[in-house]
């Protein structure tokens, strides 16, 4: 697609997002806010999956640790948002500094070790009830407020999430187009070659892991203010799997992909679960269909059909 068309498309999508609260009711607005939050989490997973070639299954940990930190500070200690939110991001990022040691392994070992890390965090959230509130979690999280500026309705919060999302997407775009972003794709393509060209590949992957954890933590903060409570489900393994699926279904290595995937998976889940209990098996089928017929996700499929249409047109 030519550059002008891309910019135009981005503006149209942005305009639609800005106008959405005028037409959508509270249910739809809530669902779309959720899609944005999980899209951001899927985007953080995709920095590793789509760019560096690492399949992490512990991103729910950063998401949950930051959500819990913010919630506990804000609810129990009455810490204002201006401190509670950054503290949440910081806590998730520090956890990323520790879990990042997983980059010493590759492939299936990396996947297994991240699963194990994820379960540790879930276990803590679940069992250490005196601190985390156990299964009930932390409830009554207020809307965020900055001094006298306070969010007072879901619609206002929707705009706040949208603004953060736009900024993050721009930052992410710069990052993946930077020399550092290129080194990640180089490592994905051939790590042996990267080493022989002078790259300390483990260190690059470690930095990418921490950046990714920071982004996941930001999503965690947005989540807790949207949800108004947090419980161990946020830290659970299915969340880690689901966000990875979002990136894959939407299209890995792209920026819009994780958001499209988030929209599809959350949309489908809401729709299917309204009339069919075994919604998880439907998700499984969707995943199988994507892997078999659209391995590059929805974005890859659209690009492929587009190329075919252009070829047919010029013939």
């Amino acid at each position: 697609m030519p550059k002008a068309a891309r910019i135009l498309l981005a503006l149209v999508v942005l305009a639609a997002a800005v106008l959405l609260p005028r037409v959508a009711g509270p249910f739809w607005l809530g669902l779309v806010t959720q899609m944005y939050v999980f899209g951001l989490l899927a985007l953080s997973v995709d920095l590793l999956l789509g760019h560096a070639g690492l399949f992490s299954l512990c991103h729910a940990s950063f998401f949950a640790v930051s959500a819990y930190t913010t919630a506990i500070l804000q609810v129990r200690h009455a810490v204002p948002t201006a401190l509670a939110a950054p503290a949440g991001i910081l806590a998730g990022t520090i956890l990323g500094l520790v879990f990042g040691l997983a980059v010493r392994t590759r492939g299936v070992y990396f996947i297994l070790i991240t699963i194990a890390f994820g379960y540790v965090v879930w276990g803590v959230a679940h069992r250490w009830s005196s601190f985390t509130g156990g299964d009930n979690g932390v409830t009554n999280v207020p809307f965020p407020a900055l001094g006298t500026l306070r969010v007072e309705s879901p619609t206002e919060y929707y705009y706040l999430v949208l603004a953060v999302l736009v900024l993050c997407t721009i930052g992410y775009r710069v990052l993946v187009a930077s020399p550092f972003g290129l080194t990640l794709r180089g490592i994905k393509a051939s790590e042996t070659r990267m080493r022989s060209l002078g790259y300390h590949s483990d260190l690059h992957l470690y930095v990418a892991f921490v950046v990714s954890a920071a982004l996941a933590s930001l999503a965690g903060v947005l989540y807790v203010y949207y949800n108004r409570f947090v419980n161990p489900v946020a830290a659970s393994f299915p969340i880690s799997v689901e966000v990875a699926l979002m990136a894959i279904v939407g299209g890995t290595g792209t920026i819009v992909g994780p958001f499209i995937g988030s929209g599809i998976i959350l949309g489908l889940r809401n729709w299917v679960s309204s009339f069919f209990e075994l919604y998880a098996s439907v998700m499984g089928l969707v995943f199988i269909v994507v892997v078999l017929w659209a391995p590059d996700g929805v974005v890859g499929l659209v690009v492929r059909l587009w190329v075919r249409a252009v070829k047919a047109g010029t013939r």
Binding site: L182, G186, A189, M194, Y199, H204
Partner: peptide
């Protein structure tokens, strides 16, 4: 999966600090 130009860019910046730049596009 990378273009030839990107291949060469990786070779050139492999031994200098520019490989860590995150805020500017290649």
């Amino acid at each position: 999966d990378l273009s030839l130009l990107e291949n060469l860019v990786l070779a050139i910046i492999g031994t200098d600090r520019r490989k860590w730049v995150m805020h500017r596009s290649v």
